[in-house]
Design a protein around this nucleic acid. Sequence first.
DNA 1: AAGACGAAAGTGGTTGA
DNA 2: TCAACAACTTTCGTCTT
Length: 310
Amino acid sequence: MVQLIRKSIKECPECGSKNIYRNTEKGETTCRDCGLVLEDRMVDLSQEWRDFSDDGSESKRRTGAPTSETQFDQGLGTEVGTTSDFYKLGSDRERDKFFRLRKWNIRISTAIERNLKVALAELKRISSFLKLPKSVEEEAARIYRLTVQKGLVRGRSMESVVAGALYAACRRHEVPRTLDEMGEASGIEKKEIGRTYRFVTRELGISIRPSNPADYIPRFASALKLSPEIQSKAVKILESARDIELTSGRGPTGIAAAALYVASLIHGEKRTQREVADVAGVTEVTIRNRYKELIKKLKLTKDVEKSKRK
DNA sequence: AAGACGAAAGTGGTTGA
DNA sequence: TCAACAACTTTCGTCTT
C-alpha cells in the first residue's frame, strides 16, 4: 500500500528549476540547482521491519505490530480477568488474591497508558519541530514504549527519554540531528539527552552504526545556502577522507563542517568558519583542525590556493 | 575591523588495567 | 573503579586581509 499524502512539488519556488531531487529515505526534497530544501516532511513509504538486536547475542528481539506506534494503546494491553471470572474461584484467599492482582494490574497499566499518552504527545511535538519523517517518529515511539515497559524510565525524566528515543531513531534512520538541535527542540540539556540515549540503546540492545558525516551535508549546506555543486564536492571530499581513515574517531559533524568549508572555498562561495561552525554546532577550532587535516592529507592545498587568487 | 590561526587549559566520555 | 587518553571546547593573543 503506497500513498503520498502530499502533492508533489514540480518546481522550485526559489529559482523555478524543475530539477527536483527527492530522497524518500531521509524525507528530504531538494532543488538540485539552488540547493533549497523544499519539503522535508514526506511520508516514508518503506516499512521498518528490522528488529532491534543486530548483534544476535541476546534474544531481545521483538517486532512491533504493523499498527501505528504513536497510538498510546495498540489494543495489546493486558487484563486480569473480569468480575465474571470471580465466581469461578473457590476460597476466600483466592478471591483476595484475584482482587489484588486485578487492582494492581489496572493501576499499573493505566499508569503506563497515561505516561505514554503524555510522552507521545511530546514526541510528536518535538518531531514536528524538527520536521522529522513519520518513520522516524514511529521508530522513536517504539523505542520509548520498550523503554517504559522495561521500567528503564525510573530516575529519568520522561522528556529526556523521549528526546533520547528520538535521537536514537534519527540515527538509525540515518537522518541525524545533532544533540544540540535535539536539545533545542526538547528543552533538555544535550548531555542529558546523550546520557539517556546511550543508556536506552545499551539496555535495549539497539545497535547503531556511527553516523556518516555525509548525512549532515544536505542540511548544513541548505542552512548555509550553498549550491548543490558544493554539496557534491563536499561529499566527494568526505569519501576520500574516509578512504584514508581520516574520519574514524572524530566527531562526524566536525568533519562534515570542515568538508563543507573546504568545498565552499574551492568553489569561490566562501563562508566564514564562524558561519559553518554555527550551523554544524561545533566551534571554529574544530573546523580548523579538521580543515588542516583535510587539505594536508588530501593534497587540496593547491586547489584552495588557486581559487583564492581569483 | 573582521576573519583566520594556533596555543593552552578545561570538560566529559571512553578505555583498559 | 580509577587513571590515562583522545576529541572537543573555551579563551585569548597574534597575524592576515
